[in-house]
Design a protein around this nucleic acid. Structure first.
Lengths: 125, 125
DNA sequence: AAATTTGTTCTATTAATTATAGAACAGTTT
DNA sequence: AAACTGTTCTATAATTAATAGAACAAATTT
């Protein structure tokens, strides 16, 4: 899994990392049961602080995507039953992005094609 | 256009406002040429600070969605030609959200249905 | 068994962000 | 003329983001 961190971006480093790990899982590059690198090893690899990686891992756990086993490691969780609360969460994240696309002049058909293209590179779980 | 601000949310007030204005435009509730309320009037209406609304307006202008005319007002811009830069911007915002949905157990078909549902309440420009 | 690695926890510092507040200015609108 | 507009300035407070180092106890590796 290729992680690319831009230090000067306006989105926080730990958020960039969180998002790219999620995409890596969606792509099937890492699957449920797999372990993420240790916070120290990953931090050294990316050239960021240990605590920054730790923050990203806890963000992923909070969202139900990984399970952190104390003194052991961070393991990708199996698929859960989707709750209406989480569906609401996804809706509130998705709506502004789609709205922006339309406002900037992307047609509905193009939006759906873009979504289709993105989904193509991801695996069903 | 109904704006709902949650002061205790983890997303900043000016971002909440920005997003809801974008959704309002996408819905066709406000159209190109329309003016947004003055920063003072809007701030008083929402119960937030003038500078917070001002920050939201400048965020919208930065994204090419409104035009601020000094000493006059904030006007919704007409649709522009979509640039590849903006398309890339939308892609980088959309991808993590779709990935999260899949990782949390939403099927590709359900994602596309969800996108379709969101698009239904919005107007083509 | 010993050494290393693990996530956790603690203090600490720096910089940036977020939100509020008030005042003053000059141009626009009523 | 009066009211309203966005702009600009200083100011303050709270939070967030990122880094740093140290120490701990449990798990893993050698």
């Amino acid at each position: 899994m290729i992680i690319r961190i831009e230090a000067e971006a306006d989105v926080p480093i730990y958020t960039q990392l969180t998002n790219q790990i999620i995409v890596g899982i969606a792509r099937g590059e890492i699957i449920p049961g797999d372990s993420l690198p240790s916070v120290r090893a990953f931090a050294a690899d990316l050239g960021v602080n240990m605590h920054t990686v730790n923050k990203s891992y806890h963000e992923l756990e909070k969202r139900g995507i990984i399970k952190i086993v104390p003194k052991s490691g961070a393991i990708i969780s199996p698929m859960e039953q989707i709750t209406s609360e989480k569906q609401q969460q996804i809706l509130s994240e998705l709506k502004p992005v789609l709205a922006e696309a339309l406002v900037l002049g992307v047609s509905k058909k193009e939006v759906q094609q873009l979504v289709g293209t993105i989904l193509e590179e991801m695996k069903e779980r």
